[in-house]
Design a protein around this nucleic acid. Structure first.
Lengths: 154, 154
DNA sequence: GCAAAAATCACCCAAAAGAATGAAAGCCGA
DNA sequence: TCGGCTTTCATTCTTTTGGGTGATTTTTGC
């Protein structure tokens, strides 16, 4: 994906393109008086576009459905983190979004996959990661995973 | 979801409305060759319905985010008896040298650092890693770390 | 309402990691 | 001793990560 368009530009072009394209389509039909089943196909296409947009919007701007699942894990007594998650986050200044990235990260996801999961661009993921590396005082993603585990963050 | 619309959200809906309005106007003109505002509004409504359906479908079919609430049950070390290391190694065909690389890997070491630790070249490390990825059935080093942990290899 | 923090995105460049292939040396059991 | 396995290393090429910088947008807390 070429990442040259800003969000505003994208939105403007989106509205413009959708409108003009479909207008052109209808105009050409009017011009040549084509009367056939193409109309139904157009309607189907339009419906498809709207449904797709709806799906995207729904996923993008809705809070995810959360299913809580309690897992009992036997661990050696020595390995129990003495500090609650939120305390660690506060102490290190890790934001919720950064934590989300960290969680996906420690699942072994690539930057692109994390971006897809969280509905942000790859660049944003990289920014979050860079900030995380600084806050966790590490240099690589693998070290970040290690540290996050050690701190009980994931 | 009764939050106040943010600027971006507003702009997006603006683009959506503009595009659909234009296209539907063109469409209705083609279809009926008349100017009929009631029809346009009606069609706009249909577009809205399609978008809503899309949103519904998106939310309905999206995989729910599963939050695992981990409860650590403290137990003495002796009570934990996973599959012995060597058994897992034999089952997956992991050689001793590969395991050594895997161990260093999960400490967050880079290829160069692992090479230094094990007194081999970086190329050798990369070969071991490639073999490990195949045997562990993963694609990235981060996933390899995950898998190794899950298997109790490290 | 406004300032601060958080979140988002872009672009460039450099470094690291990974994929594919070929190859050589040593060990070990049949 | 022969074939298979392990270990070692190289080369080329592509993809992924990471560093640094600057900017806008969005949320949040007072």
């Amino acid at each position: 994906m070429t990442q040259k368009l800003s969000k505003i530009q994208f939105l403007f072009l989106y509205g413009l393109a959708l409108g003009s394209l479909l207008s052109l389509m209808a105009w050409s039909n009017y011009r040549f008086m084509v009367v056939d089943h193409a109309t139904e196909l157009y309607l189907l296409l339009i419906a498809g576009v709207f449904v797709s947009v709806g799906i995207w919007v729904g996923l993008r701007w809705s809070a995810p459905t959360i299913i809580e699942k309690t897992v009992h894990v036997p661990v050696p007594m020595s390995a129990i983190s003495p500090e609650p998650n939120e305390q660690v986050m506060a102490r290190l200044g890790i934001s919720p979004r950064e934590l989300a990235v960290l969680v996906e990260l420690s699942k072994g996801q690539s930057n692109d996959e994390i971006a897809g999961q969280l509905f942000v661009s790859t660049n944003t993921v990289k920014t979050h990661l860079a900030n995380l590396y600084a806050k966790l005082d590490v240099k690589r993603r693998t070290q970040a995973i290690e540290k996050a585990r050690a701190l009980g963050l994931v």
